[in-house]
Write a protein that binds this DNA or RNA. Structure first.
Lengths: 342, 342
DNA sequence: TTGAAAGCGCTAACAT
DNA sequence: ATGTTAGCGCTTTCAA
């Protein structure tokens, strides 16, 4: 037992046997006599022997490491996804190595190179906002390493994907408002160059379409931060045909809208109903509590890992899949009004 | 170029030279002729050669991996810490492998074993709530692997540490309330078996002590969730000597308290001042915006990595350090009142 | 200027 | 039942 951690050779030397015998004994190989097995295992236990993953990786050509690239961790949704990734990877005997792109293309490329250099068995990516070139992903594929996109997917690259069904979630939320009696619903929308902004607006439109309610384009407002909300919403409340419902692209905006509405003397949900789109525990601290569309990030993380491991361990050539994670409308107080007008 | 990624041997074979020559050429060894260097580098470039970290690790005995164990990622504070860890590690040429203990002792022990098995160069840990035995950490030390605790530290093990100065932050917050005129401040406190709960209460007490204000023990209330807040705070507001300030152990509780206060017809900050302790972007969405103590998790992550890498690359035997991350009182609207009573 | 050989820790095929 | 050998990809003497 020299410097660092105990090796198989240390044990072999101590017991006066060969390293390969130790290896076999540790693996319960039938060739090895019971007495040797016992001796080896006891000493391994006593010396706290742990197989060297690095040596195993080199030997087997498999690192048992999954590489993950996310735009940023400090973001409720991504942290739930990462949590799901870590949990399932761990339970499946994989380790997780992860990188933040910090929304930068250069850093995303660097991260890909890092992970490739680390010989990870597979890579999970959610695109950075700054990424408009995709050749680094082709490089991954050319190296024969499975790739799964999640949430912010890359349409230009054919591979496994996991996405949230934003549009369906938005549609369900808006239908809920309509069915609760709203006829003049404002959508506080996100930037349309982002998929989530676009999808959620589509859901808003489709809900109106499917329930045969006309859409007033003046009701679609670009506003997705508390600051913008404080500027924009007071104006909306002064309209002759005051909105009777709000569907916000995220909970932060919805919560800010709730504050503004209450300050103006109107009541939620009695006068105006409100639904957001999940971004943490915000929906519980507002008063009234905020109805919101839940995105199941944790489950998304697990699905991404599942797709990857399936490809790694089962059929590497099976056709690519796109898994859609269902959203779920969680109705709380802000959208339930007893004195329904209809 | 056989199956997986390109190796030094592939390049050597193609060029009809030996692997060791390729290695030297790639490293700009002076022995190697310029022409060979050029040829090697061109082909390496063309074939997208990336050194195999696994082989390098085995060879050098250094994995360039930092292992991280956190209770859970889905937690604003920890996600900021992790972000800081990843950023500095990345910039310093290290990779990050991470594990969630999910607040479970068993899983923390398993994670330690995993990281040991992966031969990480060092380990960063924030204790799980379920951990009351610490022998797995001694094991790390016995293997000669540097260990740094952050935030939820382990007092039983002598090693490098990074902590937040919770008490000072709490003290500053409460002093701010007192200096703003409050004379009857309620502390909505966390569980006292957790360090943060204890420290923040200590800060509350010290502020009173240092400003010569007596403490009414009835003003220290165990309450650290929105649910509890809705039960507890209405009662407090009915007291004959109604509180004129609240200091909450976290922002969720503070935000919930704000809602309750406003619903009771009282105003923040005109009637009651309010300060929380950061847990995300909550402080921006409340109305009025919430004053809060910022914990600088990102910086804490960077400090933890810095301590680790210093020990790894500089002096492994230098005395252990405890770095204290200063908190910072961020005053927003909830604690600034013009019509100050004093 | 280049190459051969050994070794990092481990496994597995092939002796003994 | 146990040992020997080779090799995973790379670096590093040492030899040519």
């Amino acid at each position: 037992m020299n410097k660092g951690q105990v090796t198989i050779t240390d044990i072999a030397r101590e017991l006066g046997i060969s390293p390969s015998t130790v290896s076999k004994a540790l693996h319960g190989h039938p060739d090895i006599s019971v007495s040797t097995k016992v001796a080896v295992r006891d000493l391994a236990e006593k010396w706290n022997y742990k197989p060297d993953q690095i040596a195993l990786s080199l030997q087997s050509g498999l690192s048992k490491i999954i590489g993950v690239i996310v735009p940023e961790i400090v973001h409720y949704f991504f942290s739930t996804v990462i949590s799901g990734i870590e949990d399932l990877a761990h339970d499946s005997g994989y380790h997780v190595m992860f990188c933040q792109s910090n929304e930068s293309y250069e850093r995303e490329v660097k991260s890909v190179n890092t992970l490739l250099s680390c010989r990870v068995d597979g890579i999970l990516v959610s695109l950075s906002k700054g990424t408009h070139e995709f050749d680094h992903f082709n490089k991954i594929r050319r190296n024969g390493i499975p790739l799964v996109f999640f949430d912010r997917i890359c349409c230009e690259i054919e591979t496994d994907r996991v996405v949230v069904d934003d549009e369906a979630g938005a549609c369900e939320a808006v239908k809920h408002l309509i069915n609760s009696g709203c006829r003049n619903i404002v959508h506080l929308s996100g930037p349309q160059y982002l998929q989530i902004g676009k999808n959620r607006k589509e859901g808003y439109l489709r809900a109106h379409d499917e329930l045969n309610l006309p859409v007033d384009n003046n009701n679609i407002i670009r506003c997705d931060t508390p600051e913008e909300t404080r500027l924009v919403v007071p104006e909306l409340l002064k309209r002759a045909n005051r909105p009777d419902g709000f569907f916000a692209v995220n909970d932060l905006t919805a919560a800010a809208a709730m504050s503004v509405i209450k300050e103006s003397g109107l009541r939620v949900p009695e006068d105006i109903l409100l639904v957001g789109f999940t971004s943490g525990m915000i929906s519980d601290i507002t008063s009234p509590t905020l109805s919101s569309v839940e995105q199941h990030g944790y489950q998304m993380g697990r699905e991404a890992v599942r797709l990857l491991i399936d490809r790694l361990e089962k059929n590497r050539e099976s056709p690519y899949q796109t898994v859609v994670i269902k959203t779920e409308l969680v109705v709380k107080e802000s959208s339930v009004c007893c004195n329904n007008k209809y």
